[in-house]
Each structure stands twice: as C-alpha cells, then as structure tokens.
C-alpha cells in the first residue's frame, strides 16, 4: 500500500506491460538512507503541524458536533446522539437534494468524460493544426469555477443571454433562476463546460503514450476505425478512464460549489442545489451547526469511500519499481 501515492496515474506504464523490478511493499524508499534521530523531524514538522491544526482538529470537531444540538443563541449545546443524522436522512428536503446531487453527478461526469474523450481521440488523430486545437481545448482549465459560473449566468440571462433566444427558437421559455429544471440545465451545462479540458488533457496524454508499434499493429488488424477504437484504444485507456471517473465525481460533488453559489445567488428557494451547498447553507445561513456537521460527516464517508476505491484501482495497475 505504501506505493500507491501518485495521484494521477501515469498512463504509460499500465498500457504496456513491461517487466518490473520486484519491490516488496514494506521496503524503505531508498537503499541508502540517513540515520539521524532528529533531522527528519525538523523536515517533516511544518507539514505535520499544518495537517494537525487545519485538518485533524476541524475533522474531529465536525464528528463531535454532529452529535450535539447547538443552541442558536450560543448558550451551549446538548448531546442528542444520532438525532442529527436521523433528522437529515429522514427529511424530504435532504432526500430531494441527494437525488438531485446523484443525477447531477451522473450527468456532469458522463457528459464531461464523453466529450473529453471524443475530442482527445480526434486531436490525437489530426496532424495539421494539432497544437492549435490543443491550446484552445486546454485553456478553459485555468478558469475558476466562479468565473465560469458568472459567464454561464450571462449566457443564460433572461435579458441578455443568447441561450434564451436559442431556446425560444425551439419554443421553450428558458427561465434560469426561476424554473427548477431550467436552472438545473444551466448548472449542468456550465459544470460540464468547465471540466472538459481536464478530461481532454488526461485522455490525450493516455492516447499519446500508446506506442507506435501497437498503433501500427492495430491498423493492420482492424480496418474499421470504430472497431479499432473499441477493441484496442478503449481497453488501453481504461485505467485513465477509471481514474478520471473518480476525479469527475469528486469534481461534480465539491468543485461545483462556486458555480452553484454564483448562479443561484443566495436564492436557493426553488432552485436545485447539491449536498455540499446544503451543508454550507445550513451551517452558515441557517446556523444549524449540529445538522450541518452531521451532513458533513455523511459526505466525508461518501468521499472517503470514493477515494479508497480510487487508490485500490491505482494500486492494482501501477507498481513503481
């Protein structure tokens, strides 16, 4: 398990099975190491302190306060056991939001991965203009979610937005911010738009690490482009795709917070939102610290499970020599 650390998988090694040096998991990182009692502590201490104060302390506090009901006026808190959890999980509002979050995740992940893959496959094929396409397709990665939210909001705006006119052509009256489904559509569109470049970068580098010999052999074996893609390219890309799947789910759960916050602008009344947004609303706007913490812990469990799945996947494929 100690060797699963690299976050993004290097696409190359798993595509070609090359012989690896045997490497027992418990072996030290280096054959030769310094043997000093104090020096390593000096080096690791800053990171440890930051992690302890800003990660473990708040995390423990989240778990702790999820079992308490805080007085809204700040007069202490009373222990309520798992009531906060029970309340959250049995509330209809929470379930609606959970259902929306699941659907939102599925849509964003599916579309962003699909479009990213399509563009990567095409960009891998062309020679002329390849770097221009690449630059154009990568640029949006650098733009922050709130900025994409702002741009998206303008495009869906009821007065100036071009999408309003586009929808009108099909006889649909687009009312983002007022109509639940329309807002959901806008959120998905912006979230997908923002994530395409990331998936594109990883798929393209996965494709380009397929050795020329394999490509040429494939060209001889399968004449049809679709078959070549299905039987050779896709299996070789599978590890990259699995990695991206987890990253995209995490993205649509958490990183879309800013997009939602900018686009629904503190008017959550009849608008869709994700579970993370609800944690924020209940905690900071509703002052329901216990309930918000319980929701945090539920989310923590979901993310932790996802991350463990991700690391197991990486571990199964990549072993560093």
């Amino acid at each position: 398990m100690t060797d699963t650390a690299a976050l993004p998988p290097g696409p190359a090694p798993q595509a070609v099975r090359r012989p690896r040096k045997p490497h027992p998991p418990a072996a030290p990182a280096k054959r030769v190491q310094f043997d000093r009692p104090l020096t390593p502590w000096l080096f690791v201490l800053p990171q440890l302190l930051v992690v302890a104060i800003f990660f473990y302390w708040p995390s423990v506090q989240a778990v702790n306060s999820s079992f308490y009901l805080e007085d809204p006026f700040g007069f202490g808190a009373s222990f309520v056991g798992i009531d906060n959890y029970r309340e959250a999980l049995s509330s209809r509002e929470y379930r609606t939001i959970a259902a929306f979050t699941a659907g939102f995740c599925a849509l964003v992940t599916g579309l962003a991965l699909g479009i990213g893959l399509l563009l990567a496959v095409k960009a891998d094929k062309v020679i002329r203009g390849a770097s221009a396409y690449k630059t154009a397709l990568i640029a949006v990665y650098a733009i922050a979610p709130p900025v994409t939210g702002l741009i998206g909001m303008m495009f869906f705006d009821m007065h100036i937005g071009p999408f309003k006119d586009l929808a009108a052509l099909f006889g649909h009256d687009l009312r983002v911010g007022i109509d639940y489904d329309d807002t959901a559509l806008a959120l998905v569109t912006v979230a997908v738009w923002k994530q395409i470049p990331y998936n594109f970068i990883f798929f393209l580098s996965g494709l380009q690490s397929v050795p020329v010999a394999v490509r040429e052999a494939a060209l001889l074996d399968a004449r049809s482009g679709w078959r070549r893609f299905r039987d050779i390219t896709l299996p070789l890309l599978a590890p990259t795709a699995f990695f991206l799947l987890v990253i995209n789910i995490t993205y649509s759960l958490f990183d879309t917070f800013a997009i939602i916050d900018v686009m629904v602008k503190d008017k959550p009344a009849n608008n869709p939102m994700t579970l993370v947004y609800k944690v924020y609303l209940d905690g900071f706007k509703g002052n329901d610290i216990g309930g918000s913490s319980a929701q945090s812990v539920i989310l923590m469990l979901v993310v932790a499970a996802l991350t463990i799945v991700q690391f197991r996947l990486i571990e199964r494929r990549v072993h560093y020599g």
Binding site: T2, P40, Q47, V51, Y56, P58, S59, I289, M300
Partner: peptide, 27 residues
C-alpha cells in the same frame, strides 16, 4: 531518512487526501 514513526506519519499525511476542505468547512 530511516526513523521510527515514518510509516504512521506517512499515513497521517496521506489521509488528508481523503477529505476535501468543503466537507469540513464549518468546523
């Protein structure tokens, strides 16, 4: 470095990858 507690420290740091800031924002 070869030092005791290297493995627990590794895991203590590693665990931070499990939980993004957003889920522990209130505390």
């Amino acid at each position: 470095f070869r030092f005791r507690l290297a493995t627990p420290i590794f895991w203590a740091i590693f665990t931070t990858l499990l939980l993004p800031l957003e889920v522990r924002i209130m505390p």
